[in-house]
Amino acid sequence: MAGVQALDDTASGAAATAPPRKWELIPAGHGNTGTAFWLMAPAIAVYGIFTLFPIAVTFWLSFTDSAGFNTPASFVGVENYRKAVQDPIVWQALWQTIIWLIYHVVLAGGLGLGLALAIARLKRSQVFFRTAFFLPHLVSLAVVGVIWANIYDPFFGLLNTGLTEIGLGNWTQGWLSDPALVLFSVNVASSWQGFGLYMLLFIAGLQDIDPALYDAAEVDGANSWQKLIHVTLPGLREVMTFVMSLAMINGLKGFATVFVMTNGGPFYQSELITTYIYRLAFQAQDHGLAAVLCILLSLFAITITIVFNRWRARMAR
């Protein structure tokens, strides 16, 4: 027993004198890297199968003339990249994706913030409004597309009919046919579905602001606008950056509403990179070119993330 005790002492002593190195997941004496590996293996396998493998396949596909999984694909070098660069629709879709993203951040993010500010101070009715405004977020984007396509119907739609009924017939528009309006109109539908989540995040952020700051501002004679600018918005900075990242990611994923409401038209005016990828891959069966656009979209997302993170870091300083 004494021998065993002595060994234990030695082991604990060693642990005490040699703290675990940073890269060690489990401190020495409490396990080993083998155990750690097996514990992480399922997660690594899932990540590998569902993320790394598809990325590798996409990269490989971009150098082939693949027309689908049932066909042998030949290596075509950078031909698909050349085609992508020379395709004017790719550039139009990319530009429209940027506009789409900006619309989404402004519309969904802005509406989320506005409504959060409007209902955060409510006591009894806040739960009702919170639930009501969050409800659209539970509706599938495809269904949202169908609903809004009907709202926008130029002849029978709620919007144009409503405007006409209240004497604003001159304001009626071809919401989905006017090239200058179509992207905005579809984005309104998409943002309507998305703002509820951002609103909840902003409400959580507002609740974290110390009420004493408002009391102090009042004592200093600040009006509502000044309190908003100097207390509320700075207090929401962290939530705002989070919401912006989330909104940008969701913006880049824009697909369903465009696909359902306009299918990229009229005459490509609402084509996004995502809808064009779908069209190429699953309608034209040009998986090679579609894979190139997937890579382009990923690079675009990475660039935006880097730029945004740098901006956020600078703001935080």
Partner: peptide, 21 residues
């Protein structure tokens, strides 16, 4: 043919016809 029809699908256009508009 109204320009606004560019925003209509087959169902929307059919609706116009069925309703005799």
């Amino acid at each position: 043919i109204k320009k606004e029809m560019a925003g209509l699908d087959l169902d929307g256009a059919s609706r116009l016809w069925f309703n005799k508009r």
